[in-house]
Amino acid sequence: MGFFKRQLPMIIVSVVGFLMIVSYFSPAPFLQGMFTGANEWVQIIANFALVIGVFSLMRAHYIKIKRKEAGYGYSIVMYICLIFMTFVGLALERNIKSGGVFMWMFKWVNTPLTMTTFSLLAFYIASAAYRAFRARTFDATVMLVGALILMIGRVPLGAMLSDFVHQQITVTQIIPGLPEMAGWLLSVPAMAARRAIFLGLAVGIVATSLRILFGIERTYMGGGD
């Protein structure tokens, strides 16, 4: 039994991974077919797994309802919405993409909730910036200056401001305007740092993948040998 529980999954990981690598380097149709096939298989498995996720969600709310925990009424609402949406989408409407109750729910319930939750970012981005962008240390100051130049330089205000200063004080004309500075910061020093991050990431990702394929790293399977 130990073989099926421990070794077999590791063998599958290595074999599947190796085949994927080979198919990356070969144009042979059967390998390419295997690559797309594997991609579809992963999708199919993940979609079956969704049932387990939904089961977990329903169980968590069921426990709340059963124990009549504070706010269990919300869990009942969750149940109603989930069952209603699923019933409409699976049983009532075969063509869910256009018209109908399903798309109406998507358009007037799901989308506004998505957009609104997303838009909370505008508030958070302001409060986080207010708190963190203070000239406390050298590093924090560098961040602050970079953020300010970008924020001012990329709106019309930045251009107007630079033009005004350039016209008033002729000497400042040797200093580039804020939009140019913003563009330069983005394309040179920030790009350099981003590339360094990317190169480090690539090495980290590949090394982690190889550790997994060689069976050196197996913590994700519950660890132990």
């Binding site: 969704l50 939904v54 969600l57 609402v77 969750m78 149940y79 109603i80 919405c81 989930l82 069952i83 209603f84 949406m85 699923t86 989408g89 699976l90 869910i96 399903f102 729910m105 998507f106 319930v109 799901n110 909730l113 998505t114 939750t117």
Partner: peptide
């Protein structure tokens, strides 16, 4: 939101 979006996902 959780109910509707999960139902959407299932469909």
């Amino acid at each position: 939101y959780v109910g509707v979006s999960t139902g959407y996902l299932i469909c």
